[in-house]
Amino acid sequence: MAEQERRQRIIDEVTAASWVTDGMTIAVGAPPPMALLRQLIRRGIKELTVIDSGLSLDLLIAAGCVRKVITYYAGGGFGVPVVPSFRRAAERGEIEVWECEEGILTAGLQAAAQLLPFLPWRGGVGTSLPEVNPDLKLFSDPIRGETLLAVPAIKPDIALLHAATADAYGNVQHYGGPGWLDLFLYRAADRTIVQVERVVANEDIRRDPWATTIAGADAIVRAPYGAHPFSSRGFYVQDTAHLREYLDAATAAVQSGHTEQLTHYLNYYCREPVTHGDYLERIGVKRLLTLYEY
């Protein structure tokens, strides 16, 4: 007899991470789905092409997961103009940088979403971007003869996102809106895994279907506090002290070659915890309870 039940899409973070294999292109939403990213580090995934920015990108590079970076911004806050592991790896040529910019990136993702080879974009005309990234091609548009940039389709194999809630069927709702690239990443990617603060009943989704931001995530991972140490709107603020701990460790490794602190960070928080629950135990309930919004 054929299966009559609607397929549920909930998987755990360990299974979700096994979808990602060496050499894939992954896209990381905002806030970064840290429970999933830590699992990638734990698994020792290598040679990834990563669409990401800021400190989560830096962590993946520090952990040795990354071969190529598609990014528009690698600042990290905390008065750090450029995140340390990215900076050194780029300066040494250890990672390849696909130089782009916010508007250019969204054009490329939109092209992938619409199965187009490219989309035109004006921002970047006159700049060095098409020189340092030869995939961006200046062309004369056939309608008005203007010089524009052809941005090739940027197609992630898997988008990894974090959101507030989802039901078992992949209907995702954000509190306070999705991260700014999230929907571009979802529309462009082959598959999308969304980790959520809470899995809710299908009835809860249907109570307000207009609030559904992603209508067809391929998998849902239950990950309360899953964006930690970053913030999750409606749930908790960023753990500044923890981010500082990572940044200090990564900076020490880059500037003075003292890698002990960074190795400890990666082992203690990313490689040793088998599950997200193990990670949260290491952070501790008391610490998590200090991260309230008001």
Binding site: Y72, Y73, P81, R87, E102, G103, I104, T127
Partner: peptide
């Protein structure tokens, strides 16, 4: 290595 173009272009 600078921070990147952000949205400035």
């Amino acid at each position: 290595r600078g921070p990147g173009s952000v949205g400035t272009a």
